[in-house]
Amino acid sequence: MTQAQAVQGADSALSALRTRFVERLTVTIERLDMMAESLAEGIEPSTNLVGIIDELHRLSGIAGSFGYAELGVEAAELEMAFREVRRTEEAHALLDKLDVHVARIDEITNGR
C-alpha cells in the first residue's frame, strides 16, 4: 500500500467514525433527557446523577477529536459542576444548563 493509499484509508475510516459519533449523539440526547427528567422528579437521584456524569464524561473525552471542541469543553464543565453536587437541589439548579447543552448536541445531530 502506498502512503497516499494509507492516508486515504485513514481519512475514510475517520469519516466513518465521525458519522458513528454523530449517530451516537442521538442516543446521548435520549439518555441525558431521560435521566434529567428522572432527576427533576426525584427518581433515583444518585443513580441518575452518576449516569449524567458518565454521559458528559464520555462526550467531553471524544467530541474534540471529531471537530466539536467547544461542545467537549462545555460537556467537561458541566461534568465538573455535576460532580460537585452534594444535594439534590444543587443538581436541579444545573438541569437548565444541561438542557441548553442537550439542545446544542441536538443541533449537531440535525446537521445545523
Binding site: V7, A10, A13, L14, L17, R20, R58, I62, S65
Partner: peptide
Amino acid sequence: DDSLLLELMEITLQG
C-alpha cells in the same frame, strides 16, 4: 471503555 475512542486511537496509531 468507549469503543469509538478505541477505534479512533487505533486509526491514529496506525496512521
